[in-house]
Design a protein around this nucleic acid. Structure first.
Lengths: 226, 226
DNA sequence: TTTAAATTTTAGATTTGTCTAAAATTTATT
DNA sequence: AATAAATTTTAGACAAATCTAAAATTTAAA
């Protein structure tokens, strides 16, 4: 039985939700894929039949090893194509997602491995997300609070813990939002405040209270996944 | 209404058969696409509805201007990707067809125009077939026998009319096969034999009997198509 | 020009992926 | 614990692309 485009989309979405939320629900998956819960259920059964998913009705589901491997390979393709589009074809990093969304379904493994080599085995895509290698190894970047981030390690904002509008305004003012890459230049033990540097911006100081609520993913945790 | 992958395959096949055979029949199309005549009929109706095809039952069919334009664009994509695969990813020219067959269905026009530019606006793909430009202009190369090819005009072997094993052995020995580029250096009126030059090979002499059965496409007929 | 053969089309089925509406099940709340 | 609310699944329908078998039409041959 084939792994269709739609099945690949489901695998990928399940993988991402598993990473972000831990557990995945039918509804969450449906809304991530902009489809209906009933359609998701249908697909879950098919993926189960292909042993890509462990699934029991009403009891939740998660990827098998094989399913995870398939998902990681799709992510590898997506990110390599994004890198290609930006670095070789001069697209802006914000223009490439939809095109990569199509390219990721091209099946040839040989193609992808050669593309990888042609691009010089890049480690992360234009958005800073790590590119799995040809063995399916993916650097995992765990989420931590900005307070815990070591000095001078670049990281990417991956979440805001407490979203009061006052806090968002403050972050906005300092050019910090989801996806922003930044690093800590200085830590002040007196009040645990931090000096933070964002690319193309002057350094800014954040209080511990704010920093605690800014979640980031560091770029270099080399934990091996799968 | 969308133009699905399958519709694109049909448009492309119709275009190619139109070029080679002049008229296209339901059966010929079915066999080119390895499908059944009934399925082709179904698709013809859909293409007609989208005004990509002029079609009346039992009376044959041909592409409209719009249909031809769509077909040429798919061919453009196919050939640019082939060029990319061979020139940038170091694939052999004989390994790229199936991969390009998938890539040609990626929809972004922007992508293709940038790819074209990245590749330096190549004029023909690794098999020597001309690449349509972004306006859909396509150099047409007509097929002729090697006997009719003018002196010192490069051409590419596009077919062997009579495929006896003796003849194929002779051609093999002289490094001539499908896709080989060659030109005629000398014509001997006495017996109509020819001296032929293949790149990286010493010149060889072919009898008229052989030359008559070697079909080539010359590189320079600049007739404009659509 | 009738008949036979080949081609093409229609009719009806099948598969895949999707949907809505209703039923089943689980989770949360009095 | 009983009921309400939310979630998930089933049942049944639909569109797209395909198929087989039979019917319609055209072409070729006797």
């Amino acid at each position: 039985m084939k792994v269709s485009v739609s099945k690949e989309d489901h695998l990928k979405a399940i993988f991402h939700l598993q990473q972000e939320q831990g557990l995945v629900t039918t509804n969450a998956l449906a809304s991530a894929l902009r489809t209906r819960a009933a359609s998701v259920t249908d697909m879950l059964k098919k993926l189960k039949e292909q042993k890509l998913l462990i699934y029991e009705r009403y009891k939740g589901f998660k990827l098998t090893n094989e399913g995870r491997k398939a998902a990681v390979h799709i992510i590898r393709k997506h990110r390599l194509w994004e890198y290609f589009l930006v670095k070789k074809l001069q697209f802006g990093w914000d223009e490439v997602h939809d095109i990569a969304e199509e390219l990721e379904h091209i099946s040839s493994r040989e193609l992808i491995d050669r593309l990888d080599s042609f691009l010089g085995f890049p480690e992360s895509d234009p958005h800073g997300d790590p590119i799995p290698d040809s063995q399916g190894r993916l650097q995992v970047r765990r989420q931590l609070s900005l307070l815990e981030l070591p000095l001078n390690k670049t990281a990417q904002v991956s979440g805001i813990a407490s979203q009061t509008s006052e806090m968002l305004e403050l972050l906005q003012y300092n050019h910090i939002r989801l996806g922003t890459r930044l690093e800590i230049r200085k830590k002040f033990p007196f009040d645990n405040s931090l000096e933070v540097k964002v690319r193309n911006q002057p350094p800014v100081t954040l209080s511990a209270q704010v920093a605690k609520n800014v979640l980031v993913k560091d770029d270099e945790s080399l934990a091996e996944k799968r």
